[in-house]
Design a protein around this nucleic acid. Structure first.
Lengths: 139, 139
DNA sequence: CAGGATCCGATATGATACTG
DNA sequence: CAGTATCATATCGGATCCTG
């Protein structure tokens, strides 16, 4: 039954590839910055240290769950520091590390490309969509 | 019932923010390149035009569904072209557009930062994980 | 104030089967 | 060969309740 074998082989290949990807630094970085909240939190921290509640207010629409979870992962990755002041009530400040700061130019690069080329992308999308509606595709 | 109102306000803010984000070019770009398969397909096409089956073979572990879907979205965004040769059986070639090509330096930038700094990230993770296991957190 | 725990629905992705 | 269509599921993110 060659079909089964082919499927099994493909699955194995997929697993191996996943493992390879997991070890790829660029892949890991992309995974990190592709997180919706990461790209919002890092710039928010670029101005300087922020309290948890400040972040929560500045980044409208983030749930505590996501804010906490994202901050934790950023802390784990050494991109931000978490400083607890044991007052009553407690106060927690988050701040970019030098490593986190070094990421900002890259974010600027991305922003740059986006602002230069995304209008072309938008135009291409319009073309594509109007063309397919012409050829009878469902809208 | 102030609690209801606060929750409702937050939801509205979240919606508004989502709308704002959707209009942000950088956000759109990040969304695009954050796609697992996009970052695999684009480099695969950097060498020159590739047939569907070639891509499918080069990118081990991609399902036809994801390959087709990703290629379609890239075509829609004007990053790749799709050229059909109506032979029997049909032959379809995908190729990077100039716009798609212009994205490669950015990908190189990302790769660059990753290769320079991801070891620090990895180290930070180890520190973080060993520290939390010391303080009695569950492993 | 900051965040842990839990439940639940939306979305994304993969496997599988079928087609021009 | 190059897809399309359908189904199952896994993960993500949000809402909600609770605590030091």
């Amino acid at each position: 039954m060659p079909t089964r074998d082919a499927a099994a082989l493909r699955r194995e290949a997929a697993r191996a590839y996943d493992a390879y990807l997991a070890s790829c630094p660029a892949r890991q970085l992309v995974d990190r910055i592709s997180d919706k909240w990461v790209t919002l939190i890092l710039p928010a921290l670029a101005d300087g240290p922020q309290r948890y509640s400040d972040l929560s207010r500045r980044i409208a629409g983030v749930s505590q769950k996501m804010l906490t979870q994202t901050l934790r992962s950023l802390e784990r990755d050494g991109l931000v520091t978490r400083h607890v002041t044991p007052s009553v009530p407690v106060r927690v400040d988050y701040e970019l590390t030098p490593l986190g700061l070094s990421l900002m130019p890259l974010i600027a690069c991305i922003k740059d490309w986006a602002e230069t080329h995304m209008d072309q992308v938008a135009a291409a999308r319009q073309d594509y969509d109007s063309a397919s509606s012409t050829t009878g595709a469902k809208v």
